[in-house]
Each structure stands twice: as structure tokens, then as C-alpha cells.
Computed example of a mutant assay.
Amino acid sequence: MLNSRRKILFILNPKAGHGKAGNIVREAERLLDQSKFEIHFSETEYAGHAKLLAKKAADEHYDYVACAGGDGTVNEVASSLKDTETALLIIPAGSGNGLARHLQIPMNAASAIALLNKGKKVSIDTFSINNLFTINVAGVGFDALVAHRFAEKNKRGLKTYIKTILAEYATSKEFEAEINGTVYKAWLISIANSSQFGNNAWIAPVASCTDGILDIIICKKQKGVKLLTFAVNLFSKRLSSADYTALRSNQMTIKLFSKQPLHLDGEPAGFTDELNIYCNPLSLKVIVPQHVE
């Protein structure tokens, strides 16, 4: 008789704090019926290892790959699952968890794992910038500068992120960018597949990762009361055309008049003076709650 159990690989980071890896193993074994699931666990041993583990699972036709981490880890694993039949399960464990929040995946590890029993499989868009895989939000300017500085910190978390923002704000400067023949002055330019950076900071409130379109958000530097209003609107999902310029496209080239820091899903990605952006529609399968459309 053929094995009808669905195969799933859990990719674990043994260096994650507070025994997270061990907790995921226990919860997976407790929540998943092993007569229905063939469960495997692999630990990462070095940077980039998660990408190789995910590729091997996809090549071996696993049904699911689960990864615990933030948007950077999700990016690494998802890049190997793009255009395959293997679906991604996100177990949020990062500083912001932007894509997981957009997809309404529970922040609790046990509840996220339980989606394998009661969730559903959907296809979402991914995109590339200068041929580099991206899945959630990427950008240049101030948010990328913060990502570069944040990556240098020993401590992670929202408190450290806010401290980094405050430390860099005063000296940050606007720059110029040309898009479709129009020159824009910008403090940051975000390319959004989903609606938020993470921690419910909604940079692109109307963005959808299933429409084959990317939202390009161009923000000028705000000061005083306008800065406070911008921050309130960012975290209350009320940013509008009064706060930024929004463009929408499935592909675009942005020329920058000076080299700017670049981030991909919150991870620093060097400096660039040109962005070649391309959306890959419905190219990744993910597990989400039943009510998510």
C-alpha cells in the first residue's frame, strides 16, 4: 500500500533563544496526527543552510516545509519553494513578522502549527529586485538604513528597532529618484507585496499579495506634527495619499540619483542606484487560516 501520509519538514534554528526549537518539536508531535503526517526535523548549521534544506525538501516532493523565524528567515526558505508544489508554513518567531501578520497567521507557535490540521493552502505573489528574491516588503532610503543599523545590534526586538529609528532619524536625508520619467524627492521608497513592515506598521494598507501587483510607496521626510501624524497613521492602518505618493505596477525600474542602502524583507542587501522590480504572480504556496482570502 502506498504511503498516503503528507510529508512535512520543520526547519529549526538550534540557536534560537528560550528553547524555541525544542518547543516546536514538542508541539508538532502533540498536534499532528502521525498517521496522517510524516514529520521530519532538521536543524540549521550555518547561514544559508535553511535555503538548502528547503530546496532538498522541495526536490523530494515534500508537501510542506515549516520554518520558525522572521521575514528574513521566511525569505530564505520561500526562495527555494517558489514555483514548486511544496507549501510553506510560517511559524512567526521574528522581530516584526510582517508577512505572517498580513496573512493573519497566529503569532503563537502551537496555533500556527495547528494550521496544518485546519488551515488551507493558497498561492501568493513573490517579487524580485535586481534578480534578488523578495516576498514581503523591500526598499531603499531610511527604512533600509535602519535595517542595516539594526542588523549590527546584539539585541533584537521592537525596543531595539525603535531606538535605532530614533538614533538615525535626525541625520537621515532625502534623495531623488526617477520613475517613468518623473523625478521624485524621497526619504524612503518601499516596494510592498504585503501591507506591512511588521509589528503592525502598515506601510501599504491596501496592498494584496494575491493580485499580481506591487505597491510602490514614496515617502518624504516628515517633521514635527506631521511626523507624529505619520507615525500614528502608520500604526493605525490609516496612511493615505496625504502621507505619501503611491504607485502600482507589476514591473518597474527606479533610477536613483545617488546610491542608497537597500533592504529585502528587513535584511540589509548592500547599496544600489537602480531598482529593477518584477512581480512573480501566485508563485508560492503557503498555509493560512481558513478565513483568509
Rank of each mutant, 00 (worst) to 15 (best):
V137H: 07
Y169Q: 05
A100C: 03
T126N: 03
G119N: 09
L115K: 05
A147L: 00
K120M: 06
I129H: 04
N154C: 05
K173A: 11
F133Q: 12
K121T: 15
Y169I: 02
G157M: 06
N108F: 12
N130A: 13
G98K: 11
N130S: 10
S123A: 15
H148K: 11
K121D: 01
K120T: 15
F142N: 12
S111N: 06
F175R: 10
P106Y: 10
N136T: 06
H148C: 14
I105P: 07
L103A: 02
K153F: 00
A114P: 10
L166S: 08
G139Y: 12
E168S: 10
E168Y: 08
M107Y: 06
I162C: 08
I135M: 01
L145C: 03
V137R: 03
G141K: 04
L103I: 05
L132V: 13
I105W: 01
L99N: 03
G157P: 13
T164M: 15
N154D: 12
K155I: 10
V137S: 01
L166H: 13
L158K: 15
S123P: 08
I105S: 04
L99V: 02
G119P: 10
V140Q: 14
S128P: 08
A109K: 00
A167I: 07
D125F: 09
K153I: 09
H148P: 13
V140W: 11
S123G: 11
V122M: 10
A170G: 04
F150K: 11
R149T: 11
S128M: 11
F127A: 02
G98M: 15
A151I: 02
I124Y: 01
G141P: 04
K120Y: 09
L115D: 01
L145M: 07
G157D: 06
L116V: 06
S128I: 07
P106D: 02
V140F: 03
H102F: 08
E152W: 03
K118I: 14
V122R: 03
P106K: 10
I135Y: 00
K163C: 05
L166K: 14
E168N: 14
A138G: 15
N108T: 04
G157I: 13
I124T: 03
A109V: 12
K153V: 11
R101P: 02
L99A: 01
R149H: 12
A147W: 00
P106H: 03
A100W: 00
T164G: 09
H102P: 00
S111C: 13
N154L: 14
N130R: 05
I135C: 02
K155T: 15
V137W: 04
K153E: 12
K163F: 14
L145Q: 10
A170I: 02
F142T: 02
A151F: 03
I162M: 11
L116I: 01
G141S: 11
A114L: 08
K163D: 15
L145P: 10
I135K: 01
G141C: 12
Y169A: 08
E174Q: 13
F127D: 02
S123Q: 09
F127K: 14
A138D: 04
A147M: 05
N117D: 10
G119Q: 04
R101A: 14
A109G: 07
Y169M: 07
T134N: 15
N136H: 08
N108W: 01
R149Q: 14
